[in-house]
Design a protein around this nucleic acid. Structure first.
Lengths: 327, 327
DNA sequence: TTGTACGCGTTATCAG
DNA sequence: CTGATAACGCGTACAA
């Protein structure tokens, strides 16, 4: 930058200003500085800038898994908003481990990110301490937090699962199974099971624990869970797959075995993957506004960072049940 | 850090060393420093560290689109390797635009990332200049570059598409259509078309330009392209969908219309999505080692960054044709 | 093994 | 509108 200043015949301070607050620099200086910059091929050093100003243009994001197309929508939403404000994204993958999440949080804070987006709503004690003591704007997105660390932009896994289960009950299904993701260290999966149970009770249906399975993400596990449930419970008439692509695996298994959907068994899903409306039969599902969640998260974060807003915040972006041929 | 030093009764230099080269500090000092750190709740400032040492622990990644589960595998591979070496990932999304890629490159260089992974193998002149002048280790992964900017870890889109087309010809298909992604600003899609054409010529099949379509990514566009081709060319006996989930959309459309696959029309795909082996019929495809590409990219990048290796490099991780029921 | 002095490239502050 | 000066928090190089 000093080189640029010399070439332009001004001080480095004027160069710095020309870059950040062009209005405060004369037309003439700006012109010469622009020329010098392109002549030298100068590239600002934002590390130094952030160190000096104690502000960075980086936001951290921690997901349970990068390999999940659902999260991709959220990332895109965040990324779109940040880019238009000159901010950038640093992504970490906690692998569904709270300890790893904590490590990533320290790392991101050490990089002095100016905001944090977390998918988890459960954290280690030290993770919570780091965030609160560091007074760093944080948004949790994976579930509507009852007690947000700071801000929350999400939907309620409990309410969504309950609504879908009641929807199935209203359509006349009397013995409804649930296949969820493993609940260990996963508050979202836990809330989904709670919503399912609450709905069964409200609908006056029996809640046989044997009807509620857990399955790792994947097509194959969804198929296995379906077969297991159908063969063990002859009167089972519907299964709600509350995670990822489990429902797709189940539908494909039905195609292979010639099981009619929904007459032999109805199938419902969580999250409106594009695929679910193209597959035969099209699958009843819950639409979660993933992209919108990313967008809003980034927006509230930026408002906080730029001082346009302050204080806790809890935004429920809701969900929508989409009835199709599979139920 | 000075606070820590005071509390531990040592100089800040000793604290700095205790954090980075614990061996060079006495047992006693380390103990007291650890105590001071947890008492104060000290978090190192890596911005300052990187500025002083002129090294950063961040690697930049630029993808055409974050919303693409294929890239997710590559990201995961990169992320896994980086994490185990204490490095971290900064991700940008160029939206298939070369100009946007250039902007992201400047931004990442301004953040002083110590390495770059690019999916594109075409870049603007200024982008190339930035990378070469900045002497920053760079890996290109989206296609085997004939003239890599620096390093290349990939597979050949040309060879893969050619191999699959020849595979179809060997199985007896005589009129083979191609549906690729839009070739504008996309060197990978271009290479795939070239491979297809080369194979047709080599197999002595007619290369009717009307048989080679372009389609935006998506299930619906794949279905449309299939219908268009089949209805326009009664003698068409196979279609190769060289992109994304196009083939899945086509298979589902066949299910809906009752078109037998492969007897009425054979269908082949690019990239072994999990889905392709579960759908009915299971789809013949090319397996690209996406995760492995990410892993190796990060490895060669780290070798360069840590000085364990130098010089250009071009690693071809190949591909594999997987014959299933759809052809 | 430990400490001192200095510099990394930028921005904040205040004076001109 | 512009410039001088002092941080920002740490690492390098050398000295003790």
């Amino acid at each position: 930058m000093m080189d640029v200043a010399r070439h332009a015949g001004v001080s480095s301070m004027t160069v710095s200003r020309a870059l950040r607050e062009p209005d405060k620099v004369s037309e003439e200086s700006r012109r010469r500085i622009r020329a010098a910059i392109s002549e030298i091929g100068y590239l600002p050093n934002r590390l130094a800038g952030s160190l000096a100003s104690n502000r960075s243009s980086v936001v951290g994001l921690i997901l349970p898994s990068i390999q999940n197309s659902l999260f991709a929508n959220t990332i895109q939403g965040i990324s779109d908003v940040l880019r238009s404000s000159g901010f950038h994204l640093m992504i970490g993958d906690s692998g569904y481990s709270l300890a790893e999440e904590e490590a990533l949080i320290s790392m991101l804070l050490a990089q002095r990110v100016s905001g944090l987006v977390l998918h988890n709503t459960r954290h280690t004690a030290r993770a919570r301490w780091l965030i609160q003591e560091g007074r760093i704007p944080t948004v949790e997105t994976g579930n509507l937090a009852r007690q947000p660390l700071d801000m929350s932009v999400s939907y309620s896994n409990y309410a969504a699962t309950k609504a879908m289960t009641l929807h199935l009950a209203r359509r006349g299904y009397r013995m409804i199974g649930l296949v969820s993701l493993p609940t260990k260290d996963n508050d979202r999966a836990k809330q989904r099971r709670r919503g399912y149970c609450a709905a069964l009770e409200e609908a006056g249906l029996t809640a046989d624990p044997a009807l509620a399975l857990e399955a790792a993400p994947g097509l194959a596990t969804g198929a296995e869970a379906l077969v297991h449930l159908v063969e063990a419970h002859p009167k089972l008439d519907a299964v709600f797959f509350a995670g990822d692509v489990l429902a797709v695996g189940a539908i494909l298994e039905c195609q292979r075995r010639g099981w009619a959907v929904p007459s032999r068994v109805a199938i419902a899903s969580f999250d409106d993957l594009d695929l679910l409306q193209h597959i035969v039969p099209a699958v009843t599902t819950i639409r979660i506004p993933r992209y919108e969640i990313g967008r809003r998260s980034a927006e509230v974060l930026l408002d906080r960072i730029t001082g346009k807003a302050d204080g806790a915040l809890c935004i429920d972006l809701g969900f929508e049940i989409i009835q199709r041929q599979s139920t």
